[in-house]
């Protein structure tokens, strides 16, 4: 069984469409978890991921492994599908500008260092603070800390710049730190 993404893609492009199942099995779970963290219901997440895979198959000939890994490329497609889904449903989202002002208010200190240990109570408060973050910031934190993706790949998925995301991430950290200390 072929597990290498590049080889699988070559086979699919050569006409072996069934090989696409392997790609879905390999990346489907991660993709579904990523989208489920963005939307409320699992059904919505499943629809978005399904659309994402169909779009990925349609655009498979445009995939360039020198730009991003296949998983990152899939995440980007899924995130775009999610944005399209939100637009279609006209779900309320936090705009970037509004979000920026919130983060600007959180800029209280340049000291970005964090303690290495915390009590259970502190961890619970931190968890609540993360939940209260805007959706975009939660996605950023998730991709950065949970999926351990480098900022460059996150910037590719979210269609942004890594320098902008680095700055935004620092502000999120400051905000959470302030929440924890109060």
């Amino acid at each position: 069984m072929i597990t290498d993404d590049k080889t699988l893609i070559e086979h699919i492009l050569a006409g072996e469409t069934e090989e696409f199942r392997h790609l879905m099995r390999k990346h489907g779970g991660t993709l579904l978890a990523f989208i489920e963290s963005l939307v409320a219901s699992p059904e919505e997440a499943e629809d978005i991921v399904q659309e994402a895979f169909v779009s990925a198959f349609r655009s498979l000939h445009q995939y360039d492994s020198s730009i991003a890994s296949f998983a990152t490329w899939l995440h980007r497609i899924a995130y775009n599908e999610y944005l399209r889904h939100v637009k279609r449903r006209q779900l309320p989202t936090v705009s970037w500008d509004e979000d920026e002002s919130l983060l600007r208010n959180a800029d209280g200190t340049d000291d970005d260092s964090w303690m290495s240990e915390a009590t259970e109570e502190q961890m619970a408060r931190l968890d609540e603070a993360i939940d209260s973050l805007p959706e975009y910031d939660r996605t950023l934190l998730r991709l950065y800390y949970e999926d351990d993706l480098p900022l460059k790949e996150i910037a590719y998925i979210l269609d942004s710049k890594d320098s902008i995301l680095a700055s935004r991430l620092r502000r999120i950290r400051n905000r959470l730190k302030n929440e924890l200390q109060t």
Binding site: D112, S113, W114, M115, S116, E117, A118, Q122, M123, L126, D127, I130, L141, R142, Y144, Y145, E146, P150, L151, D162, A166, S167, L169, R170, R173, L176, L180
Partner: peptide, 18 residues
């Protein structure tokens, strides 16, 4: 400005929470 590595410490509280 901090680099991405600077704001991604190995095991601080925020990472543990995530």
């Amino acid at each position: 400005m901090n680099t991405p590595n600077d704001i991604k410490p190995n095991n601080d509280v925020l990472r543990q929470a995530m």
